Simulated scan of single mutants.
Amino acid sequence: MSNWVSASQAAELIGVSTRTLLRWEEQGKLKPMRTSGGHRRYDVSELLGTKNDSSLTIGYARCSSHDQKEDLKRQVLVLESYCASKGWNFEIIQDLGSGMNYRKKGLIRLIKLITTYQVERLVLSHKDRLLRFGSDLIFYLCEQFGTEVIIINRSKDSTFEEDLAKDVLEIITVFSARLYGSRSHKNKQIVQQLREVAQNLE
């Protein structure tokens, strides 16, 4: 291989997007040369050094309540195993809270990292682990800031009816908790009845 490669070859070599190469150039981490036709050419040794210093993968795991902490642990294990198998430099962010809560500490930190160009890729076990509604907005931010999104279990997506049942359950759970208090007997009754209805729909 030549010491100088094209943008597409450079991106493939170190496993990043061409958008990331442009970002690193803007940040002064890369200084490609230009051909007479204006095309960028990247030094291979410089690329490899940049990869070691700058590539960060974030795995994001979330569950809705303390009752689901075992599920959270399983998500973390899946994310850690997947990222480690790829040889990525990674960090796992965990959240405990509703998929309709946009103020979770982990989610806010994730958005800050993405919008400051610090995340090479975002890895999720399932799409709905990010947010119940609004995940596409986060994916749009990822696209704009050069962050690749990887969803491990795309092939196991639930059906439309299952998603709808979960969404309705989530909405009513949140509003009943606000109305009666999350630990009230009335709220617990409503949540239990909803869970039974949701199970019957499956």
Rank of each mutant, 00 (worst) to 15 (best):
R41H: 06
S36R: 14
D136C: 01
T115E: 14
I93A: 04
T116K: 10
I111F: 10
N89D: 13
I151F: 06
K105P: 11
G87Q: 09
R41E: 05
T50Q: 12
G38T: 05
F145P: 07
R132F: 01
L47K: 00
Q75S: 06
G59H: 06
E148V: 10
K51M: 11
Y117G: 00
G37A: 15
T147N: 04
G106N: 01
L141T: 09
E148Q: 12
C83A: 12
K104R: 15
V123M: 03
L77F: 08
G146Y: 05
R40Q: 06
S45Q: 15
N153H: 14
E46Q: 14
N101E: 06
T116E: 09
L72N: 03
G134H: 02
R129I: 01
G38Q: 06
G99K: 00
V44C: 07
F145Y: 14
M100T: 08
G134K: 00
I151P: 01
V76E: 11
G49H: 11
S98K: 04
Y102T: 11
E148W: 05
L72R: 05
D67S: 15
F90C: 04
G134P: 04
Q118G: 07
A84E: 14
K73L: 12
H39E: 02
E91Q: 13
G37R: 11
Y117N: 15
I114W: 07
E46R: 11
S81E: 13
R34A: 03
G106M: 01
K69W: 10
L56Q: 12
V123Y: 05
Q75C: 03
N89F: 06
G38C: 02
N101W: 05
I58S: 05
I108Q: 13
V123A: 03
L130K: 01
C142V: 07
Q144A: 09
K127I: 04
Q118I: 08
E70T: 14
V123C: 03
D128R: 04
T35E: 07
S64Y: 09
G134E: 03
D136E: 10
N52I: 13
S81Y: 10
V78W: 08
G87D: 07
S125W: 10
T115K: 14
T147G: 02
G49T: 10
E80S: 10
I58N: 02
R121F: 07
E70M: 12
L47G: 01
Y82K: 05
I151R: 02
I92A: 03
I92V: 13
L56V: 11
S125E: 11
S54E: 14
S85T: 09
E46N: 10
W88N: 09
R41L: 13
E120S: 15
A61Q: 03
E80H: 04
K105A: 13
K69H: 12
G97K: 03
S36T: 15
L124S: 07
Q68R: 11
C83N: 12
C142N: 05
G146L: 04
F145R: 01
Y140S: 12
D128Q: 06
A61L: 01
R154Y: 03
Y102W: 07
S36I: 13
D128N: 06
V76C: 08
W88M: 08
K104F: 01
F133V: 07
L96F: 09
Q144P: 00
L96A: 04
K127T: 09
F139T: 03
R121P: 03
S125I: 09
L131H: 00
Y82C: 02
K51T: 00
E91G: 01
S64R: 08
K112W: 13
S135N: 11
I114D: 04
E70W: 09
F133W: 01
N52G: 14
Y117D: 15
V119L: 11
R62A: 00
